[in-house]
Design a protein around this nucleic acid. Structure first.
Lengths: 260, 260
DNA sequence: CGATCTGTTGACTGTTATCAACTCCGGTGG
DNA sequence: CCACCGGAGTTGATAACAGTCAACAGATCG
């Protein structure tokens, strides 16, 4: 219903986390935003910057990148519908560089909008909090991934996670996803060297788990990839995609239970 | 002023994050809590458990532990004043096992208390949110640590972090801290094998950076350890410890500026 | 005072990093 | 149109780091 507008992806993401009424979602229509296109490896925010707006990712990927060692470390990857810097609402200070992986499109939304949104709807306030908690759960999972898996399963797990998160906002439904990031980006996210990332991807190809040519990755054997990665999507807390939007409060829906 | 009560450590922790008035802190005095002693490697919460209370850590260390590979992975370590499962207020579901490292003392506090606290004081609500954001920032740093440092600097960095967090709640002021955890615990947190953890600690001892005998660790050369670990405590967002508690609203204090 | 957990050591193996060279591709300017 | 350029991907050789196995020492606790 809101296709084409900046808030559409955000609505998808929020309803993937919690029940929202269409009244709640209508509040998003008032979202003031400036659309910005950002090129590969370009930064939207740098370490120690202070900001008074958030970046709602509409298309592509954003990452938090921290310079350390040879190639630095990517500590988080965000997909469309995410607000990577939502926490700056409360701590306006950036702890790393917010960098695009490949080219991306974002909507710049003033903090004030989210503050008013929270004030006007308790459900939306809760939904934003759930986005932060989802980031925390994902970050825990990255800790697990980097701490206890070898390169092959690490890369496989990351690909599974990104695929699942894309699907939550209606992308990659055919197990085919945009992959504008470089092998070095992938290496920086998995804590391995670029050379080893290359060999790892070759191994995944050799096992006929995925194809990755150009800027598109296709997962050939999803169950096989999930098995290799020991991937359990429970931590993402994404709900099944049917019937996510509830009717406005006041209306009731027959549950089919109270028949008599 | 509130020494001996369960909320004292929580008050220390919250005021390390943000300004709170003594009125705000007085609300904590009404905290209903049951004190529980938990033994080494005992679990307070298991994966997939649902809960309606939080564990406020008073003494010792708690960790989130996930079974994976040989020894599993510790994804987080908490120090006194922390509420490791604060997020269960919004997602009552545990994603890992909440396990004591060494013996610990916790206060079990019903979710309802924190909900009422949030409703009664916006500042306290914000302070609790900042605790969650601090957990997120720490988790990001663990990702950086595991992804881009070798065993020696990884272990050094973790020890620096724990020391700094302890100091924020008035512990380890003399750079001497309780270390009831085993070398295998440390290994599980740093994503290395127990044998290698042992050799790493020996190397830290050999370099005269720390001593660790029995259940006490003493940092011999703090600047040296910080340098080795490339440790920058900024991400912890701990404020300087002087004059943290503001007078109640309504009162004013001479700032020494408006002399007229 | 024996059982068990933790810490320590040595030898060996395996994974991943590093270095350096080369290819391939897309873009750009002559 | 083609030559050139730079970034990305690929390959092989070697080195560094960390894992595994196995044995033993020391501590702790019933």
């Amino acid at each position: 219903m809101q296709a084409g507008f900046a808030f559409s992806k955000l609505a998808d993401r929020l309803t993937s986390l919690t029940d929202l009424t269409s009244e709640d979602l209508d509040l998003l229509a008032e979202m003031p935003s400036a659309i910005a296109h950002v090129g590969a490896h370009q930064a939207l925010l740098r370490r120690h910057d202070e900001t008074d707006r958030c970046c709602l990712l509409l298309q592509g990927y954003l990452s938090w990148h921290i310079a350390n060692g040879q190639d630095g470390q990517i500590t988080a990857i965000h997909v469309p519908g995410d607000i990577p810097d939502l926490h700056t609402l409360y701590q306006p200070h950036a702890e790393g560089n917010l960098v695009a992986l490949g080219s991306a499109v974002v909507a710049l939304v003033p903090h004030s909008f989210f503050r008013e949104l929270s004030a006007r709807s308790a459900a939306m306030s809760r939904a934003l909090l759930l986005m932060l908690l989802a980031d925390l759960a994902i970050q825990r999972d990255w800790t697990l991934n980097l701490g206890s898996r070898d390169a092959l399963t690490r890369v496989a797990h990351l690909i599974c996670e990104i695929t699942e998160r894309l699907q939550a906002v209606g992308l990659a439904r055919d197990l085919s996803l945009a992959s504008p990031f470089t092998q070095s980006d992938l290496a920086a996210a998995c804590g391995i060297s670029p050379v080893h990332a290359n060999r790892t991807i070759q191994e995944l190809r050799r096992r006929k788990l995925l194809r990755w040519h150009g800027k598109t990755m296709t997962i050939v054997d999803w169950p096989g990839l999930v098995r290799l990665a020991e991937f359990d999507p429970a931590y993402l807390r994404i709900r099944p995609s049917t019937n996510r939007v509830r009717p406005p409060q006041g209306q009731t829906v027959s549950t089919g239970v109270a028949v008599a």
